[in-house]
Nucleic acid binder design. Sequence first.
DNA 1: ACGAAAAGTTAGGTGCAGCTAAATTACTTC
DNA 2: GAAGTAATTTAGCTGCACCTAACTTTTCGT
Lengths: 163, 163
Amino acid sequence: MSKSKTELSASLEDYLEAIFLIAEEKGAARPKDIADRLDVRAASVTGALKTLAEKALVNYAPYDIVTLTATGKRIAKEIVRKHSALLRFFSNVLDIPRKEADEFACKMEHSIPDHVLERFIGFAEFVEKCPNSGAIWQNKAKGYFCKAQGSNQTLCDQCSLSE
Amino acid sequence: MSKSKTELSASLEDYLEAIFLIAEEKGAARPKDIADRLDVRAASVTGALKTLAEKALVNYAPYDIVTLTATGKRIAKEIVRKHSALLRFFSNVLDIPRKEADEFACKMEHSIPDHVLERFIGFAEFVEKCPNSGAIWQNKAKGYFCKAQGSNQTLCDQCSLSE
DNA sequence: ACGAAAAGTTAGGTGCAGCTAAATTACTTC
DNA sequence: GAAGTAATTTAGCTGCACCTAACTTTTCGT
């Protein structure tokens, strides 16, 4: 028995995620698509697919189209969820440019504990839903982060940042 | 010339950081201390030290004490700065338990872009310094994250979360 | 339907970062 | 100062994740 333990490396998680997203976009995932998306060579994809097949996360047959098993799909969705949540936080709360936010989310998604993820999500929801605190926050944050465009207006009247 | 490019792996950055912190705590870093701190075997430390010495980041001589070069120290401080900033954010803003916050900071510190780091820092400063928005935020956050201890009081009167 | 081009696979290689086991050096302590 | 113990290093191995080069299979255009 070869480690049925579902402990995936960051790399294998990337493959799973890529397969899932490609399948969503264009129906089915072919090795070439995966290679392009992950910016690796086709040979590397073959290797990864074999490993994932051993773990029963993808259905793989040589020269055939790649699909996720039920388990594989479940795990892929988990990863996508993390990615999306992080992206949302970086974009909406920290106001990081999309591309950069996406890249960093990609790195973090493999190591973030569930527990911490929930906090990120809660935080983003709070900032988005709370028009008072959220708005103050975002404006202050931008003013603070980017003094160039900073107006002097004090949105938060008790705030020591409004010097 | 063997890659004077200062592109360090996450692993090597961990060694650098460990050496720096050990040196701060107890004056000098010995391989054993490093091994204990990073939870690797002594033999692995020797290997890493040789690599770091090649890159002129540590002063290494067999059986001698390990010190950082000026460059090594500069880089180590950068890493520590990132680690501290992330830890602060996770602890003070997201209210993650210390240990977990520390572990996750340890993973993120190697891949976070400067740009993003500054946002985290600004965010933490804002929440800490702004007694109005900050306090509302934190209380709502706790209430939101942890319904078990959630009182019904509405700190933010325009907030749609206070249902 | 056949031949070229594209896609996929295989075989074998690299670098990294860890490991064990065995040898060496340094440190105690009597 | 000799002996035992602890620390360190060396040598060689493993697994991972990528790569290139060469081969095989599939697909497509005419």
